[in-house]
Structures are given as structure tokens and as C-alpha cells.
Design a protein around this nucleic acid. Structure first.
Lengths: 253, 253
DNA sequence: CGGCTCTTTGAATCACATCAAGGCCCGTGG
DNA sequence: CCACGGGCCTTGATGTGATTCAAAGAGCCG
């Protein structure tokens, strides 16, 4: 790694140029597969604001839509309010992932996004991204794929909610977090969950109590170990078995 | 290529040119908001095959992805298979609606699509659509919006599955069909459901029996009348009340 | 050290699933 | 045209996983 790029470390107070080219996440994020000229062009439209504190909003339901956002660090939850006023979390977003796509269709956000912990995000004005996409075919394709992936993952959640038990949902959820950690070069078996049990339950269509009990069951079977928000997955493959409802419950006196 | 363009044959033996410009659905479908030049360009890449019979597939899960499809007539279901081999229906598709978008991300379809009744579809090769989108900004935008709308509707289904009772799910389902009929100039209150109770249940995360009982309850409350697959909604606004769980159950001896 | 939210655990209840049986619709063939 | 057969749909009885209600313990921040 050359010394100019190294400057990405912040707290010292020096100014430095954070951009897509030197972003550690560019191989996961929108820039994926762009040549350096195109990446520079993309870079020029990206806006990087100050970090969000826990609880702060990136955007709110019904606000006019202008930009999509990429997570640089931290974690966010995206949720919309149901007809009877409660909230439904539709996704959690980690570094390298992009949110706000649901706002395109009606020019206003159809959900809200809130920081689960201190988070840094990149704002990408959508009109400028559209212009650039028309000029850079690989960017257009990358963006189509991004939206398609969002559709695919929503449909997986639909299946999860529709056809699976509490334990299967929780196991699938943990595996999803695990895989996304691995993608960013972090441990697939030890990590910290940035969201509360309430949020997990909300996302998975379960109550807090059920989430807590389900965690308890997985722990008792020695598949995971949990201490507060810290998760240790002992055996990924066993957890996968649980997720796919192929584990017959071990009867014990 | 110009005059060789697809001469769809009618039963009477006459040939005529079916195209986007003369399609009754063009104001609902992908061509929406295209000028006539652009519509002609789009038209030149659309392929119109012979109608599908009930039960025939448009595409199957894991097949290589090449095209997206627009429904011209009839109805389709889209479903994917769960980890334990059952199927999960993720959507029903009616004239003017577009399917296959989930295939873009990995270059293979992540779901299968099957005709619920005789159906006519337009095939749109995706690589050519991508090229054209880069040249026609309004087409690119229209396609972005289309994908975004799919994301939005998937998220609504997530909320429905996660937070709502059987009666609310069924009411919401009927209202969705109703609204989509209205959009195409058909009756919002009288229509025929092209799918079986089993399919409805599968889609809504319920068993057939529960669907049947839920229909029974709505009928007893004189909100709808059902005869086989024929639905008559007496009062849309009451049905909306049910969908939003604001109807207190009427106790009766 | 409060006061707060978050989490866990237990007991009772409920909405929906499951199991079971009978009826209806519709295509097919006599 | 009617009889037969196989899905599809409905209805009832019973079972169960998750919710609800309740309460106490654990972590966190001022």
C-alpha cells in the first residue's frame, strides 16, 4: 500500500482526500469493476459528510428523494411504518452496502434510515448518477445489478418470513451477518451485533421474547455462544443446518 | 430489419404489426413517458412469441438470464424454491407488469415464472435494453423506477407477512388485485382471481384452510361475495379498514 | 448510585397449522 | 347427455409454536 493512500486514518486532524479510489470498500460497493477514469468521475459526484451519531436519520419516509447512500462505516437500519403505526425493519446495512433505492420510483423515500451506531456514509446524488450511468456502461450495469440484488434479497426475506420457524429465521439472520462480515475481511464466526433484540425481532417478524428464547436454544445446543451483543458461532455448518430446517430437534430429558 | 420485424399472425390469417406504439398497455408498461422515436427504438428490440398455455414456464430458477418479460395478457406467478424444497410465490404478474428483474444480479434467474392461464408476453433482451437505456435517458430512468417499484412492493409484502393477521393479509391481497385491475381500466370491484386458493395461501404465508376460512369471514361480514374464483367487493373502503386492522371484530351470538 | 432501557425467563393464551372428511367443480370418456 | 374421477375447496376438531402478559435481572449513562 503506497503512503499517500495510507492517509485514510483520521483522528489526527490532518486533512486528507477520501475518495472512491482509495476506499477500502470499493470492490464491494458501487465502484466495483469501474476503470480508474470512471471511478474518478463517480468520485466527483459523491458527497461525504460528517459521521452520523447513533439514532440520527439518513433520510425519512416521505421526504423528497434526491440521493442514494453508501455505508462507509458503522451500521444502519431501514424501516417503514405500517398502516397501524408500528415500524417494520426491512433491512440492516453495513459498510459497502447501498440504501435508498426504494425512493427512486416515486421520488420520495418510502422508508426511513437510522444509524444503529456511529456511522459514516457517502451520499450519491441520483440525477448525477443517472447522467454518469448513461456515459459509463459498466456503471449502469453495476447499478442495475445492485438494484436486482436488493430485489433478490427482499425475496429471500419474504420466503424466510413466510415459511420458516423462529429458530430458522434467527439462524439465517446470523448467517447473513456472518457472510457480510466475511466479505469485508472480518471474522465470519465472531462479531458484534449492532442492533437490539427488539430490532432483530422486528426484522424477522418475531417478538423480543421469541428472539431471546431462540438465541437461548441455539446456545443450549452449543451452536453459538452469546454474550450481550457479541456472537461467537462455533460451527457455521451446523448453523446452516438449523437455517434449512434439517436439524431434528435433539430430545433430552 | 425494418419491415421484417415480427409479423404476429392472427387466427384469421391476416398479418398485422403488434408493437409498443399500438399496445393498449404502453402507458403502464416500460414505454411509459417515451417519445415516439424512442418507443420505436424500444419496439425494435422487443420479441413477441406465441401465447403461453396454462402451466407453461416463462423461465426457470437457475436458468441463464437473458431477458426480462412484460405481460401482455393473462396472468403469471413467480416463485422460488425454499431450502427445504417447497415453493414460495413472490408475486403475481398481470398485463403491463414486468418480471425477471431478479435475474440481473447474477446473470441467472433466481425464480421461476409460470402461466396461471393462457398468457401473452413480450420478451425484452436485457443487453439490448441496457444499450438503448444508455442512449435514451427517459428509458433509463423508467427502468430504474421500475426496479425501484419492485423493491417497494417486495418491502410491502415483507411488512404484510411480518406484522399482519390472516384477514388483513387477504384483504390487502384483494385490494392489490383490485387496484391493478382498475389501473388497466377494469372493474375494481368485480373480477376473477386467476390463481388457486393454494397459490394465494402460499403467497400470503398461510395455509389453504386459513385462506378459505378468511374468505368465509369476509363474506359473512358482507364485505365481499365470492363464488369460486369470482370476487365481488361490496365496499372497497370497508375492505381497506380490514386491511389496516382498524376493524374491531363484530361479536355476534 | 439511581433511573433507564434492554434482555431474559415463566405461565397462560391465541391465531394459525395440522389432521381429517366431505362436497364441489370440471374435464373426460362412455 | 350423463357418469366417473381427480383436483380444488370448504368445514370441523385438535394441536402447537409463537405471542402476550408479567416480573425480575443485567447493562448503561448521567
Amino acid at each position: 500500500m503506497t503512503e499517500v493512500i495510507k492517509l485514510a486514518a483520521t483522528q489526527c486532524g490532518h486533512t486528507f482526500k477520501m475518495n472512491c479510489s482509495n476506499c477500502r470498500l470499493n470492490s464491494l460497493c458501487l465502484p466495483l469493476s469501474l476503470d480508474s477514469r470512471s471511478m474518478t468521475a463517480l468520485d466527483s459526484i459523491v458527497e461525504r459528510g460528517k459521521p452520523l451519531q447513533k439514532g440520527q436519520y439518513v433520510f425519512r419516509e416521505n421526504q423528497p428523494f434526491n440521493s442514494i447512500f453508501a455505508v462507509r462505516s458503522g451500521a444502519l437500519k431501514v424501516f417503514s411504518s405500517t398502516s397501524d403505526g408500528r415500524e417494520q425493519i426491512t433491512g440492516f446495512y453495513f459498510p459497502g452496502e447501498i440504501l435508498g433505492l426504494d425512493g427512486i420510483s416515486n421520488n420520495r423515500y418510502e422508508s426511513s434510515a437510522k444509524a444503529l451506531e456511529t456511522a459514516a456514509i457517502c451520499e450519491i446524488p441520483f440525477d448525477r448518477l443517472g447522467d454518469l450511468s448513461a456515459q459509463v456502461p459498466s456503471l449502469q450495469m453495476q447499478f442495475f445489478k445492485l438494484m436486482s440484488r436488493e430485489i433478490g434479497s427482499d425475496q429471500q426475506l419474504i420466503t424466510l418470513l413466510s415459511k420458516h420457524t423462529a429458530d430458522e429465521r434467527l439462524a439465517t439472520f446470523l448467517l447473513s451477518i456472518s457472510a457480510r462480515n466475511a466479505r469485508r475481511g472480518l471474522s465470519a464466526t465472531r462479531f458484534r451485533l449492532p442492533m437490539s433484540r427488539l430490532d432483530i425481532g422486528n426484522y424477522l417478524g418475531l417478538t423480543v421474547e421469541t428472539v431471546s428464547r431462540s438465541i437461548g436454544r441455539l446456545q443450549k445446543q452449543e451452536i453459538i455462544e452469546v454474550s450481550n451483543k457479541d456472537i461467537h458461532i462455533f460451527d457455521l455448518s451446523t448453523l446452516e443446518t438449523v437455517a434449512h430446517s434439517k436439524l431434528l430437534e435433539t430430545k433430552e430429558g
